[in-house]
Design a binder for these strands. Structure first.
Lengths: 229, 229
DNA sequence: CACATCCATGCAAATCTGGTTGATCCTTGG
DNA sequence: CCAAGGATCAACCAGATTTGCATGGATGTG
């Protein structure tokens, strides 16, 4: 999936220039013509980086930058300022207001793209593997949340760990003993049959409504996460 | 604790200039005169950022930059290139080789420090943002104030830090131990159950009136800031 | 000293967990 | 094809944990 870049700029020529070059460099591009449009756009779909004009009608670029920094979910969003001014004090204000970098007009598209790459290189890893997905199940490790088809699902601690383990290798069959080791702990003694009970609970929670059962029972072997038997 | 900055530069005058200004700006400063010294120094004590001369005796700046990027533990280390060259292609090579930013000589110390701050802000998440927002909660770091839906909320110091920590990563679950570390301090001993008490106070203060509870309890895991359970 | 804040603790309620049991399903042998 | 036997499922229960909440004493500050 290509990084999605939001351009916030009111001069159509510059928008065109950037859009053309960014798309040629295989980025996805969104446009906002002023600060308000930009805020709405960011709320709708969070970009991977923003190219932000310093001089905007309405809300100034510097103010928009501050607003974006204020919300935790966009605090780390890389912002590159586009500015016509070359004076040092202004550049400093730009950086201090929270921009990650700036480019002075007139700029070459190649330079913008190089800076974009530099800035994305730092930002992307933060979208680390904190979620597991399988089919329409989404499991958020950091938030201890599970969703199925967008709907929130509540699981107890043991069911959560069980699902997590299954989702780490979808399609693989785990014996009751393996599951006990991995989910309950290596030297805990519980009945193997107990796994059945928790599998059942997990199924019940996941299939709430009338969704398809994604847990496959393998007779005399164990269980696996995949569709249909 | 002040950020520790490593200067990699062979010209004594420039080293002096930077060292003086950085220390005046309350940074801790280390010096390396060439690439090898720099590598050893980084291995001994990892800096929070590196100011790196492009032209070095021995290993070139660009090569050192690549080496640093190669090791996982220093991959994210912010690097600012100091370069005498102004031509665009060289600047691009610098950014592409993995530098986070560059400054062309002759540079003003103020600009270097501004860029350093920008680069550290990204690396040390907590710097430089003065307000946080989540849903209708607004937390003003500088003023130690909290508002919910425009209404002022009074919190004690511990509750304030607790809320602040939760607001820095909404949706993420923190265990009692993590919260004790982050909010109380790394080597303070208090009962883990005490966290419950403060969570309760925080809830009580935030939900004054009949606002929705935004703190989610995750059984056997901890607490998170988000809506719905 | 008065006030604000913090921490430990005890109890009750909520929730989770592991086990039991009978019904049901599947496999296999005749 | 049918029946027997083993394995799995579903509902329920009781004990164990965990959390919520109230309180009282401790600590610090002006």
């Amino acid at each position: 999936m290509q990084p999605y870049i939001l351009i916030v700029e009111d001069e159509p020529d510059i928008v065109e220039l950037l859009k053309y070059n960014l798309e040629a460099a295989d980025y996805e591009v969104g446009i906002a013509r002023d600060g308000d449009e930009a805020e709405i756009s960011v709320a709708e779909r969070q970009p991977d980086a923003i190219l932000l004009d310093w001089m905007l009608p309405g809300v100034s670029g510097i103010e928009l930058c501050r607003r974006i920094r204020r919300r935790p979910e966009t605090r780390m969003l890389p912002i590159i300022m586009l500015t016509a001014r070359g004076e040092e004090t202004d550049r400093l204000r730009g950086l201090d207001s929270g921009a990650d970098d700036y480019v002075t007009k007139p700029f070459s598209p190649a330079e913008v793209i190089a800076r974009l790459r530099a800035v994305l290189r730092r930002a992307l890893p933060s979208t680390a593997v904190e979620t597991l997905e399988y089919e329409d199940i989404m499991l958020d490790l950091a938030g201890h949340r599970v969703e199925r088809a967008g709907r929130n699902i509540h699981l107890g601690p043991t069911e959560f760990r069980l699902l997590r383990h299954l989702m780490e290798h979808p399609g693989r069959v785990y014996s009751r003993e393996q599951l006990l080791d991995a989910v309950w702990g290596r030297d805990i003694y519980v009945e193997a049959r107990t796994v059945d009970v928790h599998i059942r609970r997990l199924r019940k929670a996941l299939n709430e409504g009338d969704a398809a059962d994604l847990i496959r029972t393998v007779r005399s072997a164990g269980y696996a996460l995949d569709k249909a038997g």
